[in-house]
């Protein structure tokens, strides 16, 4: 089970702060493709993906129990 945290407009539009994906292992790229295919992220998404609070690359592997977060372009400061 992989937990995916949502923030800002993603959280608001989906009306929940996390979703879970029933997989034991997948790459960040596979997750991104899955979210795109299912319509949760646009094709050329500028949303970054964090795994266990670190920004991750498409080739990084997500494992059961990892906390993933979708990080849209930030606007703090």
């Amino acid at each position: 089970m992989i937990k995916v945290l949502l923030f800002a407009h993603l959280k608001e539009q989906l009306n929940r702060s996390e979703i879970t994906i029933d997989r034991n292992e997948m790459t960040v790229g596979e997750l991104r493709a899955k979210l795109g295919k299912d319509g949760f992220l646009p094709q050329a998404s500028s949303v970054m993906i964090a795994v266990n609070e670190e920004f991750a690359q498409d080739e990084d592997i997500i494992r059961d129990g990892d906390v993933v977060a979708l990080i849209p372009p930030v606007s703090g400061g």
Partner: peptide, 12 residues
């Protein structure tokens, strides 16, 4: 974010 296409409903 008006441009991003997040659907209102989903069912992963």
């Amino acid at each position: 974010y008006e441009k991003t296409g997040v659907p209102k409903e989903f069912g992963l």
